[in-house]
Computed example of a mutant assay.
Amino acid sequence: MKMSPKTIRLKELPFLNEQTCKIKNPEKLEIQLNELVSGGPAKLQIVSDFDHTITKQRTSNGTACATSFEIFSSCKSLPSNYTSESKKLFNKYHPIEIDPSIPLKEKVNHMIEWWSKTNDILVGFAFDGKELDDVAIKYKDCLRDRSDEFFEILDKLDVPVLVFSAGLGHSVESVLKQANVYNDRVKVISNFLQTKDGLVNGFKHPIIHTFNKNETVLVESDYSSLVHDRDNIILMGDSLGDADMANGVPSSSNIVKIGFLFHHVNENLEKYMDTFDIVLIDDQTMNVPIGLLNLIKN
């Protein structure tokens, strides 16, 4: 006779009772976690941002971890005008992206501007993708602590992972491969370069920025075939816009949203707690996602 699963109680989960872990609605989360456990691995999928979500927001010495575009910019063969203009755009628009005082609608307009201007400077030069693999080796340790364990558990449980990134897909895939966590059940939806006459010619469309990730996921039919009956979702992101990455799934889906908060903590905490079920403050590990997976697999 099969035993009924033990009821999950938040107070019994040390990884959700750390000072860095904030939960606005414990009762709701408790119900969600029990649904995850009841459904088991066969009903689970992961939807995650990449930059500063799968990768750390800072290193142990406090410096920021490189984004996927910054990794690309580290390639020595890129023309100097691209790297200098790309840095100017980052310095102008990134502060806007993380500024809690700027309304969302205004941010969206700035993000469209940023990605459009980036598209314009990604034109007319040759690029060898093998160089990116060589560069990515240097950045594989930027993944959150215990990321290898996180992906290993998912692989053993046959749980599909959608990595949904507004960054550069070539860098995302390359870093995941160099870190030995990329496999057939990991799907990257991101901005990928296209070529014309052997030269880079901007992004393939549609262009994905921080606040429109939810608009393209369902067109990926090959990924959809992996998850059509998986209505339990663990979603992870570091931006408020990331919380919408699973928009478009059936309304009956059970979505546990994890938000990694690092910038402007005091100003952003309330918004993050209103948006995410679990908010992790300056947590550079995969401890909480692994804790959830361990509940589901047991």
Rank of each mutant, 00 (worst) to 15 (best):
G259S: 03
S101Y: 11
N81F: 15
I96N: 05
S60L: 09
L29Q: 02
Q178P: 00
Q57L: 14
R185E: 12
E12V: 00
I290N: 00
S190P: 02
D229E: 14
L143F: 07
F262N: 10
N232P: 01
L143R: 05
L10D: 06
V227R: 00
D277Y: 01
S48N: 12
D229I: 05
E173F: 04
S253E: 01
L78T: 12
C75A: 13
S101V: 10
N214C: 14
S73G: 13
S224A: 13
K138W: 10
E149Q: 03
I102C: 07
V217P: 00
N266F: 14
G259K: 02
S38M: 04
K271A: 12
K140F: 08
I112P: 06
I121F: 04
V135Y: 02
E149S: 06
V200D: 03
D49F: 06
S190M: 03
T195V: 14
F90H: 11
H205N: 11
L122R: 08
Y223W: 13
T118I: 15
I208Q: 00
L33M: 07
L269N: 03
H52S: 02
L293S: 02
R230G: 07
F260W: 12
S225H: 10
C75Y: 01
K2V: 14
T118P: 01
V135F: 06
K177M: 07
Y82V: 14
G248N: 03
L162W: 09
F276H: 06
L199V: 05
Q57I: 08
P103V: 11
N34L: 06
S77Q: 08
F262P: 04
L89K: 05
K88S: 15
A136G: 07
V172Q: 09
E18Q: 13
S4N: 06
V186N: 10
F164C: 12
T7R: 15
M236S: 07
G62W: 07
A126G: 13
H110Y: 15
V108W: 00
I46S: 04
N294P: 00
E270I: 12
H228D: 13
H170I: 08
A42N: 15
K56I: 04
M245S: 11
L132R: 05
L78F: 05
A179T: 01
K177L: 02
A246E: 07
E149T: 08
N81T: 15
H263Y: 15
L122A: 12
I281Y: 14
E18D: 07
D145R: 12
F151T: 07
S225Q: 12
G129R: 15
S86V: 10
N212P: 11
E97P: 04
V108D: 09
E30C: 06
R9V: 02
H170P: 09
D197Q: 12
Y182G: 04
D282C: 09
E173V: 13
N268A: 08
A179S: 05
R9E: 13
D134C: 14
E106F: 13
H110R: 09
D231C: 10
K43R: 13
L295S: 01
T216N: 12
I71Y: 06
T59M: 11
N25G: 01
I281C: 14
V227I: 15
D155A: 15
D222F: 02
D282K: 13
E12G: 03
N91A: 04
D49H: 07
Y223C: 08
P79Q: 01
I112K: 14
L176K: 03
L162P: 00
L193Y: 09
